[in-house]
């Protein structure tokens, strides 16, 4: 067999490339593999908020910011408290100054004086990540930097996040933001570092009135699960189909 130098070099180059490709590099994700990796877990963290008990002191927001090293004076926060004042004429006023980090101390709402006699109902609504069963923020991540753990908590891998901001746009509840220092997407972690040590989240511990509670929804004897099973609770924006796992007692139609 005659072989030219050119052909010989070509064959050698091709052969070298083929051997250089490790077999592992060809491993792609097949649906069967994906399904096999899906294992069941006996923990599913959920949250319960009692809006009747909340007084708008904002200790939860302060504790969250200090516990989770969210820059204290930056206008970003993982959890916040909203004030709703609904007047007898049907008008609604709502505000959350600095996410209620310093609580609500001023009777003025949206810089307006409100006559107490005009108030039909007024209340506070703490908000945080709902740790949705179908988190839209996770679906849109183009790099796999945000994900859901087996126990339902959605986290962000700071070393892998490219800061594109898709997840911030995708969350219907607006709980995500850019971390001013790391420049990556940031969100409530349900204080997973505390939960795994058998503690409560920082906001739950800081709440003097028991307006916030965290519990394992897969344990039917858990006090939080008991309330969700036996009392009238609602979730925020159920029409989005995200199956949020933060439940609210006393939610009003004006709350968005």
């Amino acid at each position: 067999m005659r072989q030219t130098r050119r052909e010989f070099l070509k064959t050698i180059t091709r052969g070298a490339i083929a051997t250089a490709l490790p077999i592992g590099a060809f491993k792609f994700l097949s649906p069967r593999e994906a399904r096999a990796a899906v294992a069941s877990s006996n923990v599913r963290w959920g949250f319960l908020v009692d809006t009747y008990k909340c007084v708008g002191c904002g200790f939860c927001v302060k504790a969250c910011k200090l516990e989770n090293e969210v820059p204290y004076d930056a206008p970003v926060t993982r959890t916040w408290v909203e004030r709703y004042v609904i007047l007898k004429n049907g008008r609604m006023l709502a505000d959350t100054p600095m996410g209620a980090r310093d609580g609500f101390t001023d009777p003025k709402v949206q810089e307006q004086e409100v006559n107490p006699r005009d108030i039909a109902k007024a209340f506070f609504v703490p908000k945080l990540c709902n740790q949705c069963e179908n988190p839209p923020c996770v679906q849109v991540c183009p790099v796999g930097a945000t994900y859901q753990r087996a126990d339902g908590v959605v986290l962000v891998d700071r070393s892998w996040c490219i800061g594109c901001g898709y997840c911030i746009m995708a969350c219907p509840y607006g709980v995500r933001f850019f971390h001013p220092i790391y420049h990556t997407a940031e969100k409530c972690t349900f204080c997973i570092h505390r939960l795994v040590k058998g503690m409560n989240t920082a906001c739950v511990d800081a709440c003097p009135f028991g307006a916030r509670k965290v519990g394992n929804l897969k344990d039917p004897n858990d006090p939080v699960t008991q309330v969700i099973l036996n009392q009238r609770v609602a979730v925020l924006k159920p029409e989005y189909g995200t199956k949020p796992q933060a439940f609210y007692i006393g939610l009003d139609e004006n709350v968005r």
């Binding site: 649906p31 990796a37 877990s41 679906q139 796999g144 930097a145 994900y147 753990r149 997973i192």
Partner: peptide, 17 residues
Amino acid sequence: GIYERGFMYGFHRKSNE
């Protein structure tokens, strides 16, 4: 890789947990 929550929600670096 893909972990407990499947490809849609569980595609991540495990050590980040």
